[in-house]
């Protein structure tokens, strides 16, 4: 069932790590952000398998590479503005070129990071990572899904980036909902338009959808790479209209992945809602989404404009 209580995706990660610790290969690293990364429970249970990396994200990723090449499953955690943004070179050469089994975990992604302001709102992370060969990028939509995504990431051999969030939202999925890396989830079957999103911002999509006289098709595209082209194409062939909603810069995010696919395979009318090539500022997540047009009001407006 869905939990009524609002929870963050980063808390789902913390919960999953406490459970994953049973696997002795699982180790965790944090660049001085234990609380923020929700690693306390893991550290309480498995202190010997936690490595404090200090405020040194580049070296954390290098250490994680070494641990992975020796058979460990390291989860290297920080804020999205530091991992991947500060250590992209280490991720490219040490992690991806070596195909090291490193899990990169970024909490505090998107405008939803809120009050900390522009410097701490990772809005470019997906764009930075998406072109790296061999990396899997996952942005779960809620607490429940993050638990499953974290466990699935541990099972998958190869580099994974988990894009997580600080703000709390109601669950969109159930504890029993299935989750498979690379398999997009149709949250609502519908018509006229396909709305594709990732992360908790999908809650805004549902708010907008309630105002419509029809049911749009809503896809939770939690795996941004590799993109589930099959599910997306199947839906788009039916609706022939696409709106992508992402708490990320318009440039280079999920919307870019979707439109790269559609422009080759099935060109239709598309619109990407995201941060319009600007830095953010301090404010509450919902206030920021409103100001920059990522909220339900603007989503509704764009749906109406697309289906006109």
């Amino acid at each position: 069932m869905k939990t009524k209580q609002k929870q963050s995706t980063r808390s789902g990660f913390g919960q999953a790590m406490a459970e994953l610790g049973r696997n002795k290969k699982v180790v965790a690293l944090s660049a001085d952000l234990i609380d923020s990364n929700k690693l306390n429970a893991f550290i309480d249970k498995y202190p010997q398998r936690f490595f404090q990396a200090g405020v040194a994200e580049q070296n954390m990723v290098s250490m994680a590479t070494g641990l992975a090449l020796e058979g460990k499953i390291p989860f290297a955690c920080s804020f999205g503005v530091f991992v991947p943004m500060r250590c992209l070179d280490q991720i490219r050469v040490s992690v991806c070129y070596n195909q090291a089994n490193v899990k990169l975990v970024a909490t505090h992604c998107g405008l939803a990071t809120g009050e900390d302001g522009a410097t701490h709102q990772a809005l470019e992370d997906v764009a930075a990572l998406r072109s790296l060969p061999g990396i899997t990028i996952i942005e779960p939509c809620d607490y429940n899904q993050t638990i499953k995504a974290t466990k699935a990431a541990a099972k998958l051999k190869g580099p994974v980036y988990l894009r997580l969030h600080r703000a709390k939202f109601e669950d969109l999925t159930r504890k029993t909902s299935s989750f498979q890396i690379g398999k997009a989830q149709v949250l609502q079957k519908g018509q006229k338009i396909t709305i594709i999103g990732s992360g908790p911002i999908i809650t805004e999509v549902f708010k907008a959808a309630k105002e419509l006289k029809f049911k749009p098709e809503i896809i939770n595209c939690h795996t941004i790479k590799p993109l589930d082209s099959e599910t997306i194409l199947k839906s788009v062939k039916k609706t022939r209209k696409v709106l992508v909603v992402q708490d990320h810069q318009v440039i280079g995010g999920l919307g870019s992945a979707v439109t790269e696919l559609l422009s080759e395979k099935y060109p239709v009318k598309c619109k990407i809602i995201g941060m319009p090539d600007q830095f953010g500022e301090s404010g509450k997540p919902t206030e920021l989404w409103h100001k920059y047009g990522l909220d339900s009001r603007n989503i509704l407006k764009e749906i109406k404009s697309l289906i006109k």
Partner: peptide, 18 residues
Amino acid sequence: LATASLGQGLGAAVGMAL
């Protein structure tokens, strides 16, 4: 370890040592 971009080998060696 594949290396080229300088300043990454020692960190990976630290990870292997851990």
